[in-house]
Design a protein around this nucleic acid. Structure first.
Length: 170
DNA sequence: GACAGATGAAGGA
DNA sequence: TCCTTCATCTGTC
């Protein structure tokens, strides 16, 4: 069965992000075009007319949360996240990241220990790279050991910018 | 089943 | 200190 995703733009001061929704919730978020991450495979379509009320509500929450995070504030209430098809390990990693407050950072090793897999530090990096909803699932708050910036699927510029806005000194 | 990867730690210069 | 090397674990193809 192929999932259909609805793409909706989110205009911010940093450019136009693209949110993707399935019938279960927010399934993905793309950075503005100039630094856009690779689009995952799957059938997408532009917003149907009229937009289902449920998705309109999710989109409002996503927009508010995204704007808040870009300003270095707490995301607040998020729409349901559609992690269907993802592994338990990835969900555990992302779930841990969701609990991080703005300005709070953890290392890949600390995330690994927090989910009870202290040796799976490399796998945590892999799970971060597979995160379909960057910014809202704050993988930018995960640093390498010794507070080094590490990597970021959307580009290190974004990671650094987001961290600076949250008051994190690298 | 093999390979790659957003790491971490240890050892050497 | 900085750099290099290697062990480890998981996801993906």
């Amino acid at each position: 069965m192929q999932r259909r995703l609805i793409e909706l733009p989110i205009a911010t001061t940093d450019g136009i992000f693209t949110a993707r929704y399935s019938e279960r919730g927010l399934a993905g978020l793309n950075f503005p075009k100039k630094t856009a991450a690779k689009r995952p495979a799957g059938q997408t379509e532009s917003a149907p007319e009229p937009l289902p009320a449920k998705i309109e509500g999710w989109h409002r929450r996503t927009t508010t949360a995204l704007t808040a995070v870009l300003a270095g504030r707490k995301a607040g209430k998020l729409p349901p996240l559609d992690w269907d098809g993802k592994t338990d390990f990835q969900k555990a990693v992302w779930g841990k990241m969701l609990k991080l407050a703005p300005g709070e950072t953890l290392s890949y090793g600390e995330i690994a220990r927090a989910i009870g897999r202290p040796q799976a530090v490399r796998a945590v990096g892999g799970a971060c790279g597979a995160n379909p909803i960057p910014v809202l699932v704050p993988c930018h708050r995960v640093l390498a050991a010794n507070k080094k910036i590490g990597g970021f699927s959307g580009g290190l510029d974004w990671k650094q910018t987001l961290l600076e806005r949250e008051g994190v000194k690298l």
